[in-house]
């Protein structure tokens, strides 16, 4: 089943045509990776899915962008509700200057949940989901800034999981981390797929090959090729894809 469906999406920052007629579907409970050189539009596309691009002044969008069959750019859509359903993890860990506990509880609190018992359980569940519970269970009231970079990123993943999204968007989630933290995040992506649909942007082609089920290759705002990851890396159908994954440019 397709959880995300986009059709002929064009996106402009002012005069700059950032996405050119992109159409692609994302299957539920799969991992989809976007690769491509810097400035190719892969992050822009990712940010369309939770309407993060709304924050950019002077942006324009044409085409259709459906999640669970509903047009997320429809006027009646409540953006805050959408972002609850479509969580996001950013390139650099961005924990709030609060305690570890409060970082996770934040998403629940802003959505009006007050039941302390419920919040406590959800915090534990989310930290376990992000494979961080064992490391932090004794220091939940410590500042999130006391954690290492890799732990902070898993905290941010736990924070996103706490509001029970359907989709988790990850914008180069491991690019600021060391190799060990990176492999932990990758393992995590693999286990999260059972419950969530994951869309990940990455600079690292090996990472895309390791974690994803399907891969999209973007270049200059166009989706050049989108197919099963194995096929994309073993037998790409376009020459540009072949050139990129063999490292001839990018």
């Amino acid at each position: 089943m397709n959880i995300v469906e986009t059709k002929d999406v064009n996106f402009y920052y002012g005069d700059f045509h950032a996405l050119k007629g992109v159409s692609l579907d994302v299957v539920k409970n799969s991992v989809t990776a976007f690769i491509g050189p810097s400035g190719c539009g892969k992050s822009t596309f990712l940010r369309l899915l939770n309407r993060m691009n709304d924050l950019i002044p002077d942006m324009k969008l044409t085409g259709k962008c459906l999640i669970n069959g509903k047009d997320i750019y429809d006027k009646r859509v409540d953006v805050d509700e959408l972002r609850k359903k479509v969580g996001m993890v950013f390139q650099k860990p961005n924990p709030f200057p609060k305690t570890i506990f409060e970082n996770i509880a934040y998403g629940l609190r802003v959505n009006g949940i007050k039941d302390k018992e419920f919040i406590r359980n959800r915090v534990e569940e989310s930290l376990k989901g992000a494979a961080l519970w064992e490391e932090v269970k004794d220091k939940l009231s410590r500042s999130a800034y006391d954690l290492s970079g890799g732990q902070q990123q898993r905290l941010c993943i736990a924070r996103a999981l706490a509001v029970k999204p359907d989709i988790l968007l990850m914008d180069e989630p491991a690019s600021a981390l060391d190799p060990i933290s990176t492999s932990k995040i990758e393992e995590l992506i693999f286990t999260l797929k059972a419950e969530y649909t994951i869309v990940i942007v990455t600079h690292n082609m090996q990472q895309a090959a390791r974690v994803s089920d399907s891969t999209g290759f973007f270049m200059l705002g166009e989706l050049i090729e989108f197919s099963e990851t194995r096929k994309m890396f073993l037998n790409p159908s376009k020459e540009q894809t072949q050139n990129y994954i063999t490292g001839r440019f990018g």
């Binding site: 805050d80 969580g87 709030f96 802003v110 959505n111």
Partner: peptide, 18 residues
Amino acid sequence: VPDSLRVGSYALGASKLQ
């Protein structure tokens, strides 16, 4: 206050005021 914190908050469904 870095924008990454604001954006992180929006991404969890928080309103601007929150």
